[in-house]
Design a protein around this nucleic acid. Structure first.
Lengths: 114, 114
DNA sequence: AATTTATTCAACCAATTGGTTGACAATTGG
DNA sequence: CCAATTGTCAACCAATTGGTTGAATAAATT
């Protein structure tokens, strides 16, 4: 796998379990055990997922007694949002094309397709 | 790998070569050969990358003579943008916290950290 | 018809992923 | 001190990834 920050972020998010963990953390920080509870896999497996998120910079850990509290870090998400900036205009255009196409269809005019 | 649409999209984007291909396609449609040219790997390798993007729905192919023209499809990017909606408020908050922290530091006031 | 151009397919390879289990470490509470 | 709780680490496994090369397909050109 590529190790540049953006690739790490995308790769970390390419898993439903990890996205669920992130969604949970969006509500506030929690321990690894609580994060693992909803998932039907071993604690070790969730621990690995959390490490992937941490490596991507998407979460940070804070140690308190025998607990490791995880909290979401927005930085990489913000970078991802920045990456998307280059494409946002594009799907607006796409929709415009679709609108034009549909309008043509309703008019029974097919010159719009060329 | 998970096969749900969002996971496919994130996974497809978790590679610099594939993001470069997408960036190129944002300028307009091109053949596989032209997409491959800037990359120092075999054409077959690029062809595979393109298939990954296609499977994720990020590009579509149109056949013309012996060429396959690829064009960007914005749908999955739009979905990704929608997924981000749940997190955008969050990094605004994070930045606010950072601002508050930095302001405290400058004032020599550390009560803001608790 | 034969050749060139453009692309994919198939087989292969090393490295990585996502899961398992069992052992280990750290901390708390009886 | 001892036991329970919380989490990580290490070894292992099957499946997937990202690359290679060489053969196959399809259309254009000569």
């Amino acid at each position: 796998m590529a190790t540049d920050p953006l690739s790490l972020t995308f790769a970390a998010l390419a898993d439903p379990t990890r996205r669920a963990i992130l969604a949970r953390l969006a509500q506030g920080q929690t321990s690894v055990g609580e994060l693992a509870a909803p998932h039907q896999m071993s604690l070790a497996a969730v621990s690995k997922h959390i490490k992937v998120l941490e490596t991507a910079g998407l979460i940070a850990r804070e140690k308190d007694a025998q607990y490791r509290y995880c909290k979401l870090q927005a930085g990489p998400l913000k970078d991802l949002d920045g990456w998307m900036d280059a494409y946002r205009g594009l799907w607006r255009d796409n929709l415009d094309q679709l609108d034009a196409y549909l309008a043509d269809m309703q008019r029974g005019d097919d010159t719009g397709k060329q």
